[in-house]
Amino acid sequence: KEQQNAFYEILHLPNLTEEQRNGFIQSLKDDPSVSKEILAEAKKLNDAQA
């Protein structure tokens, strides 16, 4: 469930490039146990690119 939530949120971050988004999603698939950390990174990058 946590992985699904992170997946959904990353898909809807407006400021990520397609490449960045795909990278985060691939990381989620590779290691779902760190989905919280991956989501935090994605949000940080999204904010930095706002």
Rank of each mutant, 00 (worst) to 15 (best):
R21Q: 05
E18N: 11
V34I: 12
P32E: 08
R21T: 04
E19N: 08
A48I: 12
D31I: 07
E18G: 07
D30R: 15
P32A: 10
Q49A: 08
Q20V: 02
N22R: 14
T17F: 05
N46A: 08
L39T: 06
E19V: 12
F24A: 02
K1W: 05
A40T: 11
I25W: 05
A6W: 14
Q49W: 08
F7S: 06
A6D: 05
F7L: 13
P14I: 08
S35Q: 07
F7N: 04
H12P: 01
E41K: 13
I10G: 01
L16N: 00
Q20H: 02
Q49C: 03
D47W: 15
L11W: 15
K36T: 06
L11A: 10
V34H: 08
R21S: 03
A48P: 02
I38N: 01
H12I: 08
S35R: 04
N5T: 12
I25F: 12
L11Q: 08
E37C: 08
T17Y: 05
L45V: 11
G23E: 04
A42E: 00
F7Q: 10
V34P: 04
P32Q: 05
Q3M: 06
L13Y: 07
D30M: 14
E37A: 08
P32M: 12
K29W: 13
N15T: 04
K29A: 08
L11S: 09
A42H: 00
V34N: 08
N5G: 11
F24V: 01
P32I: 11
E37D: 05
P32H: 07
L45C: 02
S35G: 04
D30G: 13
L13T: 01
E19P: 08
F7C: 07
G23K: 14
L16S: 00
L11Y: 14
Q49F: 08
S35K: 07
D30W: 10
E9P: 02
E18I: 11
I10R: 01
N22K: 14
A48W: 06
F24R: 00
A6G: 04
A6R: 06
I10F: 02
V34A: 14
Q20E: 04
E41Y: 15
V34D: 10
A42N: 00
K36D: 09
V34T: 12
I25S: 04
D30N: 09
E18D: 07
L28C: 04
Y8D: 08
F7K: 05
L16Y: 00
K44S: 07
I25C: 02
L13N: 01
H12W: 07
K29D: 06
Q26A: 11
E18L: 10
P14F: 15
E41L: 14
Q20G: 01
A40L: 07
R21D: 00
E2R: 03
E37F: 15
R21P: 00
E19F: 14
N22C: 09
P14D: 07
K29T: 12
A40I: 12
S35L: 13
I38P: 00
H12N: 09
F7P: 03
Q49M: 08
L45Q: 08
E37Y: 15
G23Y: 15
R21K: 06
E9K: 15
H12V: 08
Q26P: 00
L16R: 00
S27K: 07
S35C: 03
Q20I: 02
K36C: 06
N15H: 13
S33Y: 12
N22S: 13
E41A: 13
V34F: 12
N22W: 15
K1N: 14
L39V: 12
K44R: 05
G23L: 15
L28R: 00
K44F: 11
Q26F: 13
H12K: 15
G23D: 06
Q49H: 07
E18A: 08
K44A: 06
N46R: 02
Q49R: 05
S27R: 14
L39Y: 07
S33P: 05
E19I: 04
K36F: 14
P32W: 13
L28M: 09
T17L: 05
R21L: 04
A48R: 11
L39A: 09
N15W: 14
L13W: 02
Q3K: 05
S27I: 11
S33H: 07
D30A: 14
E9S: 13
P32N: 03
E41R: 14
T17C: 02
Y8P: 03
L13C: 02
E41V: 12
N22Y: 14
D31C: 03
A42S: 03
Q3I: 04
Y8T: 07
A48M: 12
N5R: 15
E9G: 06
D47P: 01
K1P: 13
A40F: 14
I38M: 03
D47S: 14
E19D: 08
L16G: 00
A50V: 09
L13G: 00
K36V: 08
L16E: 00
N46K: 01
P14N: 11
E19R: 11
E2L: 05
L45N: 03
A42D: 00
Y8H: 03
I38T: 08
P14W: 14
Q49E: 06
F24L: 06
P32Y: 08
A50I: 11
L28E: 00
E18R: 11
A42G: 02
I10Y: 01
A6E: 09
Q49P: 04
F24K: 00
K1G: 15
I10T: 02
N22Q: 12
L28I: 06
S33N: 09
A42L: 01
G23W: 15
P32R: 06
L28N: 01
